[in-house]
Amino acid sequence: MDILSQFQRIFETDLEVHTDAFRTHLDRIRETDQLTPPNSTFLTIANTTTQKYDYLSENFTILTGHDRADFMAQGMPFFLQQVHPDDVQIWLGGLADIISFVMQEVSPENRLRVDVRFNFRMRMASGEYVNIIENQVPIHLDQYGKPVVGMGYVMLNGQGDPQPIQGTVRLLNDAGQYETLLHKNYSQKLLTDGLTNRERDVIRQVALGDDNETIGQKLFISKETVKTHRKNILRKLQCDNFPEVIAKIMSRGFFL
Protein backbone atom coordinates (compact mmCIF):
# COMPACT_ATOMS: atom_id res chain seq x y z
CA MET A 1 0.00 0.00 0.00
CA ASP A 2 1.46 3.39 -0.97
CA ILE A 3 1.76 6.24 1.52
CA LEU A 4 -1.18 8.20 0.09
CA SER A 5 -3.48 5.22 0.57
CA GLN A 6 -2.29 4.91 4.16
CA PHE A 7 -3.18 8.55 4.84
CA GLN A 8 -6.62 8.08 3.29
CA ARG A 9 -7.29 5.12 5.59
CA ILE A 10 -6.61 7.30 8.62
CA PHE A 11 -9.21 9.82 7.47
CA GLU A 12 -11.70 6.96 7.09
CA THR A 13 -11.38 6.06 10.79
CA ASP A 14 -13.51 7.50 13.60
CA LEU A 15 -10.53 9.44 14.96
CA GLU A 16 -10.84 13.22 14.94
CA VAL A 17 -7.94 14.14 12.67
CA HIS A 18 -9.65 16.64 10.36
CA THR A 19 -7.68 19.71 11.45
CA ASP A 20 -5.84 22.15 9.21
CA ALA A 21 -2.60 21.60 11.14
CA PHE A 22 -2.85 17.83 10.79
CA ARG A 23 -3.44 18.05 7.06
CA THR A 24 -0.44 20.37 6.71
CA HIS A 25 1.71 17.88 8.66
CA LEU A 26 0.64 15.24 6.14
CA ASP A 27 1.70 17.50 3.26
CA ARG A 28 5.18 17.82 4.77
CA ILE A 29 5.35 14.06 5.41
CA ARG A 30 4.44 13.37 1.79
CA GLU A 31 7.40 15.54 0.75
CA THR A 32 9.74 13.58 2.99
CA ASP A 33 8.38 10.34 1.55
CA GLN A 34 9.81 11.38 -1.83
CA LEU A 35 13.29 11.12 -0.30
CA THR A 36 12.82 7.65 1.23
CA PRO A 37 13.00 4.20 -0.35
CA PRO A 38 9.61 2.96 -1.62
CA ASN A 39 7.51 0.70 0.61
CA SER A 40 9.61 1.45 3.70
CA THR A 41 7.10 3.36 5.85
CA PHE A 42 4.07 2.59 7.99
CA LEU A 43 1.71 4.75 10.05
CA THR A 44 0.55 4.49 13.66
CA ILE A 45 -1.84 6.32 15.93
CA ALA A 46 -0.88 5.87 19.57
CA ASN A 47 -2.85 6.78 22.70
CA THR A 48 -0.60 7.30 25.72
CA THR A 49 -3.53 7.33 28.15
CA THR A 50 -4.60 3.80 27.22
CA GLN A 51 -1.08 2.65 26.21
CA LYS A 52 -2.67 1.23 23.05
CA TYR A 53 -2.47 1.76 19.31
CA ASP A 54 -5.73 3.05 17.87
CA TYR A 55 -4.40 2.45 14.36
CA LEU A 56 -1.61 0.61 12.54
CA SER A 57 -1.45 0.80 8.76
CA GLU A 58 -2.16 -2.41 6.90
CA ASN A 59 1.42 -2.79 5.62
CA PHE A 60 2.76 -3.04 9.20
CA THR A 61 2.98 -6.84 9.15
CA ILE A 62 4.60 -6.90 5.70
CA LEU A 63 7.34 -4.51 6.84
CA THR A 64 7.99 -5.81 10.37
CA GLY A 65 6.73 -9.39 10.38
CA HIS A 66 4.78 -8.68 13.58
CA ASP A 67 1.10 -9.56 13.62
CA ARG A 68 -0.82 -6.28 13.32
CA ALA A 69 -3.76 -7.35 15.50
CA ASP A 70 -1.50 -8.74 18.25
CA PHE A 71 0.64 -5.61 18.25
CA MET A 72 -2.42 -3.39 18.63
CA ALA A 73 -3.84 -5.59 21.41
CA GLN A 74 -0.61 -5.66 23.42
CA GLY A 75 0.07 -1.98 22.87
CA MET A 76 3.00 0.16 23.90
CA PRO A 77 4.49 -2.18 26.55
CA PHE A 78 5.00 -4.75 23.80
CA PHE A 79 6.45 -2.10 21.50
CA LEU A 80 9.00 -1.11 24.16
CA GLN A 81 10.13 -4.73 24.30
CA GLN A 82 11.01 -4.49 20.60
CA VAL A 83 13.31 -1.45 21.00
CA HIS A 84 16.98 -2.44 21.07
CA PRO A 85 18.18 -2.79 24.70
CA ASP A 86 21.13 -0.48 23.99
CA ASP A 87 18.77 2.21 22.68
CA VAL A 88 15.69 2.05 24.87
CA GLN A 89 16.92 3.99 27.93
CA ILE A 90 18.63 6.66 25.82
CA TRP A 91 15.50 7.00 23.69
CA LEU A 92 13.15 7.20 26.69
CA GLY A 93 15.36 9.78 28.38
CA GLY A 94 15.51 11.84 25.20
CA LEU A 95 11.76 11.58 24.74
CA ALA A 96 11.16 12.87 28.28
CA ASP A 97 13.53 15.77 27.58
CA ILE A 98 11.72 16.59 24.33
CA ILE A 99 8.28 16.52 25.99
CA SER A 100 9.55 18.81 28.73
CA PHE A 101 10.85 21.23 26.10
CA VAL A 102 7.51 21.26 24.26
CA MET A 103 5.55 21.87 27.46
CA GLN A 104 7.84 24.70 28.56
CA GLU A 105 8.70 26.39 25.27
CA VAL A 106 5.70 25.86 22.96
CA SER A 107 2.41 27.59 23.78
CA PRO A 108 -0.67 25.35 24.11
CA GLU A 109 -2.28 26.87 21.02
CA ASN A 110 0.77 25.88 18.95
CA ARG A 111 1.33 22.34 20.23
CA LEU A 112 -0.77 20.71 17.51
CA ARG A 113 1.63 22.33 15.03
CA VAL A 114 4.62 20.50 16.52
CA ASP A 115 6.45 17.60 14.91
CA VAL A 116 8.75 15.45 17.08
CA ARG A 117 11.27 13.14 15.47
CA PHE A 118 13.45 10.37 16.94
CA ASN A 119 15.47 7.40 15.78
CA PHE A 120 16.09 4.01 17.40
CA ARG A 121 16.45 0.35 16.49
CA MET A 122 13.42 -1.94 16.48
CA ARG A 123 13.34 -5.72 16.47
CA MET A 124 11.50 -7.36 13.59
CA ALA A 125 9.58 -10.60 14.09
CA SER A 126 12.57 -12.41 12.57
CA GLY A 127 14.70 -11.28 15.52
CA GLU A 128 16.79 -8.91 13.43
CA TYR A 129 16.98 -5.21 14.31
CA VAL A 130 16.28 -2.40 11.85
CA ASN A 131 16.98 1.31 12.24
CA ILE A 132 13.79 3.34 12.63
CA ILE A 133 13.12 7.04 12.12
CA GLU A 134 9.77 8.10 13.58
CA ASN A 135 7.97 11.41 13.25
CA GLN A 136 5.25 11.98 15.85
CA VAL A 137 2.50 14.53 15.18
CA PRO A 138 0.09 15.31 18.05
CA ILE A 139 -3.62 14.89 17.37
CA HIS A 140 -5.13 15.46 20.83
CA LEU A 141 -3.98 17.31 23.95
CA ASP A 142 -5.11 16.57 27.51
CA GLN A 143 -6.56 19.16 29.90
CA TYR A 144 -3.03 20.33 30.72
CA GLY A 145 -2.11 20.81 27.06
CA LYS A 146 0.11 17.72 26.95
CA PRO A 147 -0.01 15.64 23.74
CA VAL A 148 -1.66 12.29 24.50
CA VAL A 149 -2.69 10.99 21.06
CA GLY A 150 -0.31 11.20 18.15
CA MET A 151 0.22 9.94 14.64
CA GLY A 152 3.54 8.28 13.94
CA TYR A 153 5.13 8.20 10.49
CA VAL A 154 7.67 5.40 10.81
CA MET A 155 10.44 4.74 8.29
CA LEU A 156 12.65 1.66 8.20
CA ASN A 157 16.14 3.01 7.54
CA GLY A 158 19.10 0.67 7.39
CA GLN A 159 20.05 -2.75 8.66
CA GLY A 160 20.35 -2.22 12.40
CA ASP A 161 23.87 -0.82 12.71
CA PRO A 162 24.22 1.34 15.85
CA GLN A 163 23.31 4.97 15.19
CA PRO A 164 23.44 7.98 17.53
CA ILE A 165 20.01 8.63 19.09
CA GLN A 166 18.81 12.07 17.98
CA GLY A 167 15.70 14.06 18.79
CA THR A 168 14.23 17.03 16.93
CA VAL A 169 11.29 19.37 17.58
CA ARG A 170 9.91 21.34 14.63
CA LEU A 171 7.00 23.75 14.34
CA LEU A 172 4.81 24.52 11.33
CA ASN A 173 5.23 28.21 10.51
CA ASP A 174 2.60 30.47 8.94
CA ALA A 175 3.64 29.26 5.49
CA GLY A 176 3.02 25.66 6.53
CA GLN A 177 6.73 24.81 6.56
CA TYR A 178 8.77 23.24 9.36
CA GLU A 179 11.16 25.35 11.37
CA THR A 180 13.48 23.57 13.80
CA LEU A 181 13.06 24.60 17.44
CA LEU A 182 15.38 22.03 18.99
CA HIS A 183 17.80 19.36 17.86
CA LYS A 184 19.77 17.19 20.28
CA ASN A 185 22.16 14.31 19.91
CA TYR A 186 21.71 12.01 22.91
CA SER A 187 24.64 9.77 21.97
CA GLN A 188 28.17 10.40 20.65
CA LYS A 189 29.23 13.53 18.79
CA LEU A 190 28.13 13.77 15.15
CA LEU A 191 29.47 15.51 12.07
CA THR A 192 26.27 17.59 11.95
CA ASP A 193 26.28 18.71 15.60
CA GLY A 194 27.78 22.06 14.59
CA LEU A 195 24.83 22.99 12.37
CA THR A 196 22.31 25.53 13.60
CA ASN A 197 18.57 24.83 13.59
CA ARG A 198 18.10 27.20 10.65
CA GLU A 199 20.87 25.49 8.69
CA ARG A 200 19.05 22.18 9.20
CA ASP A 201 15.88 23.76 7.81
CA VAL A 202 17.76 25.02 4.75
CA ILE A 203 19.30 21.59 4.10
CA ARG A 204 15.85 20.00 4.16
CA GLN A 205 14.45 22.48 1.65
CA VAL A 206 17.46 22.10 -0.65
CA ALA A 207 17.03 18.32 -0.54
CA LEU A 208 13.39 18.82 -1.57
CA GLY A 209 14.56 20.78 -4.63
CA ASP A 210 13.75 24.36 -3.59
CA ASP A 211 15.84 27.24 -4.90
CA ASN A 212 17.11 30.08 -2.71
CA GLU A 213 14.17 32.38 -3.37
CA THR A 214 11.60 29.67 -2.57
CA ILE A 215 13.46 28.67 0.59
CA GLY A 216 13.46 32.29 1.71
CA GLN A 217 9.72 32.58 1.14
CA LYS A 218 8.99 29.37 3.05
CA LEU A 219 11.23 30.24 6.01
CA PHE A 220 10.50 33.99 6.04
CA ILE A 221 14.11 34.97 5.46
CA SER A 222 15.76 36.83 2.57
CA LYS A 223 17.38 35.14 -0.40
CA GLU A 224 20.71 36.62 0.67
CA THR A 225 20.33 35.05 4.12
CA VAL A 226 19.67 31.68 2.47
CA LYS A 227 22.88 32.10 0.46
CA THR A 228 24.80 32.84 3.65
CA HIS A 229 23.39 29.73 5.34
CA ARG A 230 24.36 27.62 2.32
CA LYS A 231 27.93 28.94 2.38
CA ASN A 232 28.18 28.22 6.12
CA ILE A 233 26.83 24.68 5.63
CA LEU A 234 29.41 23.93 2.93
CA ARG A 235 32.19 25.32 5.13
CA LYS A 236 31.12 23.44 8.27
CA LEU A 237 30.69 20.12 6.49
CA GLN A 238 33.75 20.64 4.26
CA CYS A 239 31.80 19.99 1.07
CA ASP A 240 32.07 21.54 -2.39
CA ASN A 241 28.38 21.37 -3.31
CA PHE A 242 24.99 20.42 -1.91
CA PRO A 243 24.62 17.00 -3.56
CA GLU A 244 27.77 16.15 -1.60
CA VAL A 245 26.22 17.64 1.57
CA ILE A 246 23.07 15.53 1.23
CA ALA A 247 25.01 12.33 0.52
CA LYS A 248 27.43 12.96 3.37
CA ILE A 249 24.93 13.72 6.09
CA MET A 250 22.49 10.97 5.11
CA SER A 251 25.30 8.43 5.38
CA ARG A 252 26.22 9.62 8.88
CA GLY A 253 22.96 9.54 10.77
CA PHE A 254 21.33 12.85 9.82
CA PHE A 255 17.65 12.67 8.86
CA LEU A 256 15.62 15.30 7.07
Rank of each mutant, 00 (worst) to 15 (best):
T214M: 13
G127N: 11
I132N: 01
A175D: 10
L190P: 02
R113I: 02
D27R: 15
L190K: 08
G160E: 12
F7N: 08
G194V: 11
N173F: 07
F11H: 15
S107Y: 05
C239H: 07
F42C: 00
K223Y: 08
G93N: 15
K218F: 07
Q177Y: 10
T225E: 07
N232V: 07
K184A: 03
Q74W: 08
V154H: 03
G145P: 02
Q81W: 01
L43M: 14
V114S: 02
P37T: 10
A73P: 02
K231H: 06
R230K: 15
C239D: 03
P38T: 04
T64S: 02
A175W: 01
D115M: 13
K218V: 03
P162M: 11
R198N: 11
I165S: 02
T36Q: 15
I62E: 15
I45F: 06
V116D: 02
D211R: 12
G94N: 05
Y178K: 08
I246Y: 03
Y153C: 03
E244G: 05
L35P: 01
R200N: 14
P243L: 14
H18M: 06
V116T: 14
Q188F: 13
I249H: 06
L56R: 10
P138M: 08
T13Y: 09
F101G: 03
F11D: 09
Q34W: 07
L26E: 04
L182R: 05
Y144P: 00
I139A: 02
V88N: 04
P77N: 09
R204D: 05
G176W: 06
D14I: 12
I90N: 05
V88P: 00
L112N: 12
V206D: 00
S5W: 11
N185D: 09
P108T: 04
R113L: 08
V148D: 13
E128W: 00
E213I: 09
M76C: 03
Y144N: 15
E199L: 10
I139R: 00
Q238R: 14
Y129L: 04
T180E: 11
N212S: 14
Q34Y: 14
G150Y: 09
P147K: 07
Y129W: 03
V114T: 13
L92G: 00
D193C: 05
Q51N: 15
P147R: 12
I3H: 00
V148R: 08
L95N: 14
E179H: 04
V116H: 00
T44P: 01
D33G: 02
M122V: 03
L190D: 08
D86I: 01
F220H: 12
T13P: 00
L191T: 08
V83P: 07
T168S: 09
G253C: 10
V83F: 11
V169E: 06
